[in-house]
């Protein structure tokens, strides 16, 4: 998991939890590969019905060569550079949305990127969008966007319009119908390479590299939550309870 992981731990309010789940008693790990990122991602499918259909849509888009595949990045992720690239892309996504809107609606929303399960909140304030990468989750009542790294990369690079991404199921929206309508209405063209707003040269390096798929694989993070966790020693003496849902 390398530097990216460490970085997340450092900023995580719940680095304790993360550390516990991954590196403590074997009993905790009784479920083996059921790391909590995968489980949190899996549960998206229940919490936001069919949220994981985004993954299928991305697969289809990559197979049809509409989206860049992830590169198999073998270089070690030093100092969390992968995280920084994704974070920059998310910032840039906020900017792209802002630039595309003729009139900025008073709509705050949160986006989760499924691969790292990274939540970002875009808060509408004073006609601008304020980006907070790496938040604990959506605020109650927020419109929630579910998407993936390559999609945001494509939009930021001006190769994919937000509206098209929504149409193709690459971004799914969860919220009231009016929230969705406002979002689509305001931001549908974000990502359409319009010479007056997006010049490739002006694109940040982060955006380019993300678009190129360099964020690649084990981009992992934990959804962070404000739950207080007590370190329990009761990991089920035989490890069975600790296993929980992890079986196979």
């Amino acid at each position: 998991m390398g530097g990216y992981w460490q970085h997340l731990q450092a900023v995580s309010r719940l680095s304790m939890t993360a550390g516990l789940i991954f590196a403590s008693s074997p009993a905790v790990l009784a479920c083996g590969y059921h790391d909590d990122v995968s489980m949190a991602r899996g549960m998206m499918n229940w919490v936001y019905p069919e949220a994981l259909h985004v993954l299928g849509a991305i697969s289809t888009a990559v197979a049809e060569r509409r989206l860049a595949p992830p590169l198999s990045d073998k270089a070690p992720d030093l100092f969390g550079s992968r995280y920084r690239r994704t974070a920059e892309a998310l910032e840039r996504f906020g900017e792209a949305l802002g630039e595309s809107a003729d009139r900025m609606p008073a709509l705050s929303f949160s986006i989760v990127l499924l691969e790292p399960m990274l939540w970002t909140r875009y808060e509408a304030a004073g006609g601008r969008l304020r980006t907070q990468v790496h938040v604990t989750g959506p605020k109650a009542g927020d419109l929630v966007l579910v998407s993936g790294e390559a999609v945001i990369g494509g939009i930021v690079a001006g190769r994919l319009a937000t509206g098209e991404a929504i149409e193709r199921g690459l971004i799914r929206l969860y919220g009231s119908e009016s929230q969705k309508a406002v979002f689509v209405g305001a931001f549908r063209s974000a990502g359409n390479a319009r010479p007056d707003t997006i010049k490739p040269a002006a694109m940040s390096r982060a955006a380019q590299s993300v678009a190129g798929g360099e964020t690649a694989m084990p981009l992992r993070s934990v959804p962070i939550t404000a739950l207080s966790i007590r370190q329990s020693t009761a990991f089920g003496a035989d490890g069975t309870l600790a296993c929980g849902p992890g079986h196979h």
């Binding site: 003729d102 009139r103 509206g163 098209e164 929504i166 149409e167 689509v184 209405g185 549908r188």
Partner: peptide
């Protein structure tokens, strides 16, 4: 605001 005009997406 004319958001519905000539907009394939909408």
């Amino acid at each position: 605001l004319g958001l519905d005009k000539d907009d394939t997406v909408v």
